[in-house]
Design a protein around this nucleic acid. Structure first.
Length: 592
RNA sequence: GGGGGUGUAGCUCAGUUGGUUAGAGCGAUCGCCUGUCACGCGAUAGGUCGAGGGUUCGAGUCCCUUCACUCCCGCCA
């Protein structure tokens, strides 16, 4: 028999009444009645109420033991009378009458209470993370994360994927995020980098003939934190497949995500087949490439209306003449909303740095009510209604600006208006694919052509017919998966043809030598018989956050760093000894 | 690198237009209480009001500087 426990703290039931048991755990809560003491004993599995009274010689000692002390209890399982049954806990029908106890681990005065629903400052939570992690909510989040990861691993194996590990110490990559660097003792002056993602390795695994790979892969990027982005490290479900087209990857990911979300959440999933939206459509209809499809509002372009003679809204007309566009959002059945509803949105838009949102409401007999209504003829209004699917009683919000500025403000306005009208169902998941990303874009500042996303992506179309003279028109087999407005991952069919890769890189301003040097491992491997292949890498934390309904990534991470990338519990990063520096051939030149 | 928010007891917070000795709940300590499950009741201890400087007869409160935490922008192929 185990020396510490015969049962865990969530195991005992009515059938155990009369038995002698051993329980070990933390003192979650004491209720001291002077001559009678209740102790809630807690472990990973649950809580069992234990009870002791004055007749027991150990009563006076146990009465004084601190919360969160780890104790072992020897006692008898006894029935609770009907009035004292606690339905909140699984063991609520019984309690353990303490015969003796023993302290296994003492506890100092607590810097933060464990038994409490209060919020605490991040600083204290992170410094005493081991205490914080005992608390119910976050303890359950971490358990959920563990279950989600093993479920995903299982599903992947069931689908015939092989799990491989790839190096943690690798080479610095020239593109993308800042690398974390590790000095090499054996190679003075040289550095390893921690992988930002196993991108090149997973492609090499395909070239090595393994066909289907996955890994719950740690990724390291030295970039600033956000609420949904840890500084430093995060995990991806990294996967790659050979001899596939985009659709087959979609199938695998849809199946995996549906199974995972159905298993771990009761929320409704809007469509089992994820809709596909082209990148350009997404920017037009939602103003962003990560639309929240729970939100029914759609953005329309009605620029043409403002070149009509029977529209006299001169501010917009003038702007349209000089190249601006007009986009709008129609809200259903809002004719009875008070003036303040519209004005608040206009005011809000101004606070966002836009020049405001013009608005009016379509009324019976086709007229427009609102400050700018008088500038539109009946015909013009009918045309707008046709273009936007608006009906009598609907309202319309309009903005006029450059394409980029319009996307920004209409995307924000879409969220804001939906919130104000309470149009978003928080009890659903809405997935979609964003497809047909452009291969290149023009850098806003330098005006140079650059890769818009992954330079290793395969361009679309017949490879002999691609017009390299018009690089901005080239689309890539590149895709994102989005859920409730959160980007879960991006992926692509990879370019496995070295000559094509040189060509694509040359458009972005890299010559052959540079490509050879920067991506030597990859480009070399692709020249020895590479299979067509592609993949994707959903973010594990993003998935768990959606399932746990948490906005902050630290709520689903065991030992996160703070915003300044410090681990307050382990004191990382820390200074190192002179000897260590010397061995690594490093000297410090820290600016104060 | 830039912008916003927060910082008062071990923890969570209140603190009025600048005005006496800075308060509450939880926790701690001590006492009372045999059916609680946020047990109850009474008492006690506990404060560099993040730090430094300034204005003022007088600063938790106003001003400046600075530090910490956090949210956002930049950044994250």
């Amino acid at each position: 028999m185990n020396r510490y426990r015969s049962h865990n703290c969530n195991e005992l039931r009515k059938k155990d009444v009369g038995n002698d048991v051993l329980l070990s755990g933390w003192i979650n809560k004491k209720r001291d009645h002077g001559n009678l003491l209740f102790i809630d004993l807690r472990d990973n599995y649950g809580i069992t109420q234990c009870i002791i009274d004055k007749k027991n010689t150990q009563f006076n000692d146990l009465e004084k033991v601190q919360l969160e002390t780890v104790i072992k209890i020897n006692g008898e399982v006894v029935n609770r009378s009907t009035e004292t049954i606690n339905k909140e806990i699984d063991t609520g029908e019984i309690e353990v009458s303490i015969k003796s106890y023993e302290i296994l681990g003492t506890c100092k005065e607590l810097p933060l209470p464990v038994f409490s629903d209060q919020e605490y400052s991040e600083e204290i939570r992170l410094k005493y993370r081991f205490l914080d992690l005992r608390r119910k909510k976050i303890h359950e989040n971490i358990l959920l994360r563990s279950k989600v990861i093993s479920f995903i691993r299982n599903e992947m194996i069931k689908m015939g994927f092989l799990e491989f590990q790839t190096p943690i110490l690798t080479s610095s990559s020239p593109e993308g995020a800042r690398d974390f660097l590790v000095p090499s003792r054996l190679n003075p002056g040289k550095f390893y980098a921690l992988p930002q993602a196993p991108q090149q390795f997973k492609q090499l695994i395909m070239v090595s003939g393994f066909d289907k790979y996955f890994q719950i892969a740690p990724c390291f990027r030295d970039e600033d934190a956000r609420a949904d982005r840890s500084p430093g490290e995060f995990y991806q479900l990294d996967l790659e497949m050979s001899f596939v087209e985009q659709e087959e990857i979609f199938k695998v990911v849809e199946k995996l995500l549906l199974n995972t979300f159905k298993k771990f959440s009761n929320k409704k999933i809007i469509t089992d087949k994820f809709p596909k939206i082209s990148y350009s459509d997404a920017l037009l209809k939602y103003g962003t490439d990560k639309p929240d499809l729970r939100n029914p509002l759609i953005i329309n372009d009605i620029t043409e209306i403002f070149s009509r003679d029977d529209v006299s809204f001169d501010i917009f007309k003038k702007l349209v003449k000089s190249g601006s566009k007009v986009r709008c959002i129609v809200t259903k059945n809002t004719q009875d909303k008070p003036r303040s509803f519209f004005d608040n949105i206009d005011k809000w838009a101004k606070e966002q740095g836009a020049s405001g949102l013009a608005y009016f409401t379509f009324e019976k007999g086709i007229s427009a009510k609102g400050p700018i209504g008088k500038f539109f003829s009946r015909d013009a209004l009918m045309e707008i209604m046709k273009k936007t699917n608006a009906k009598i009683g609907d309202s319309i919000f309009l903005a006029c600006n450059s394409k980029i500025e319009l996307e920004k403000i209409t995307s924000l306005a879409r969220d804001k208006i939906a919130q104000d009208l309470d149009l978003i169902d928080n009890n659903t998941f809405a997935f979609c694919w964003i497809v047909d990303y452009p291969m290149y874009e023009r850098d806003v500042i330098s005006k140079k052509i650059k890769f818009s996303h992954n330079p290793f992506s395969m361009p679309q179309g017949n490879l002999n017919e691609i017009n390299f003279e018009k690089p901005l028109d080239i689309l890539a087999y590149q895709y994102d998966i989005v859920c409730n407005g959160i980007e879960l991952s991006s992926g692509a069919i990879r370019n496995h043809i070295p000559e094509l890769m040189y060509k694509l890189f040359s458009i972005a301003g890299y010559n052959k030598d540079e490509v050879n040097k920067k991506f030597s491992g990859m480009i070399n491997a692709l020249s020895y018989g590479a299979p067509p292949h592609g993949g994707i890498a959903p973010g594990i934390e993003r998935i768990v956050m959606l399932l746990a309904n948490e906005k902050n990534i630290r709520e689903i991470t065991m030992f996160p760093m703070n915003q300044n990338a410090q681990d307050l519990m382990m004191n990382a990063p820390s200074e190192i000894s002179e000897n260590q520096l010397k061995e690594l051939n490093l000297y410090l030149n820290v600016k104060k």
